[in-house]
């Protein structure tokens, strides 16, 4: 069995061509980053704005709970069937059924981004904001200089969760004959080719783990609180209080 999987994965013919691993991988990467970018452009301004003014909390929190109850597969199927021709159309390097896949990915990237960004903004210590106001900082300044840096750890956690969610959803797109690495699995099952099914599963899992490691690394690098702590001992003393509470709540 393992030998069959190995020979499938090392056979160059399985990697090339329109239905090769390389094509499906490219499709999945394109879909993941495009949908993540769009979800960030839509979700972040809304969540940060609501968090700044302190409105719409119920909506921001519940969007995650509702998102969890709706199967990604059902959304993909509804969009694919419902959009008629656009539902199955092939769009350049994005592959077949690209449009419903992108829409579904964006929908499922939004909840973790919105919820975490909102909670991150609301969990910034009120006293720090009052102190900033006392120093003469106004709305936009408080947002940029105080709230955003302190909320960033949770915002980044949301983005990391969104990446994992999007990668998993992009895999399921194969069930509507859509783009991505999941196709290796669905085609393997259809052809009763177990080595192919296992190869596809291994590829999907390994790339998911690589993606997770990369994103966790980026999260560490981008986190200003962690960076400040590392770079300057002088600032650590004054920032420790709020820093710890922000990081602690992100687990």
């Amino acid at each position: 069995m393992l030998a069959d999987v190995w020979s499938y994965l090392t056979d160059g013919a399985n990697w090339s061509g329109a239905e090769g691993i390389a094509t499906y991988l490219l499709q999945q990467v394109l879909h993941t980053f495009t949908s993540l970018l769009i979800a960030l452009l839509i979700g972040l301004p809304v969540a940060l704005g609501l968090g700044h003014v302190g409105r719409g909390g119920v909506l921001a929190i519940n969007i995650s709970n509702v998102g969890r109850a709706i199967p990604t597969f059902a959304v993909l199927v509804l969009l694919s069937v419902g959009l008629e021709d656009l539902g199955t159309q092939e769009i350049g390097p994005y592959g077949r059924a690209a449009f419903p896949t992108l829409v579904a990915l964006i929908l499922f990237a939004l909840p973790p981004i919105v919820t975490n960004a909102y909670v991150g903004m609301r969990e910034v210590d009120r006293e720090i904001i009052e102190a900033a106001n006392g120093m003469g900082m106004r709305g936009w300044q408080v947002f940029r200089e105080v709230e955003l840096p302190l909320a960033l750890p949770l915002i980044l956690t949301g983005v990391r969760l969104a990446v994992v969610q999007v990668w998993a959803t992009a895999t399921i797109a194969a069930l509507v004959a859509g783009p991505g690495l999941g196709r290796i699995i669905t085609e393997g099952v259809a052809n009763k080719n177990t080595p192919q099914v296992v190869s596809g599963a291994l590829l999907v899992a390994v790339f998911a783990l690589i993606l997770e490691v990369v994103v966790v690394g980026l999260e560490r690098v981008l986190d200003p609180v962690r960076r400040a702590r590392r770079v300057s001992v002088r600032f650590v003393r004054s920032e420790r209080g709020p820093a710890d509470s922000a990081v602690g709540s992100s687990t």
């Binding site: 994992v164 399921i172 999941g182 393997g188």
Partner: peptide, 15 residues
């Protein structure tokens, strides 16, 4: 485990 997409999880258990 949670990082592995469900489609891959079911498929990997197939053998």
């Amino acid at each position: 485990l949670y990082t592995i997409p469900s489609l891959a999880m079911f498929a990997i258990l197939l053998p």
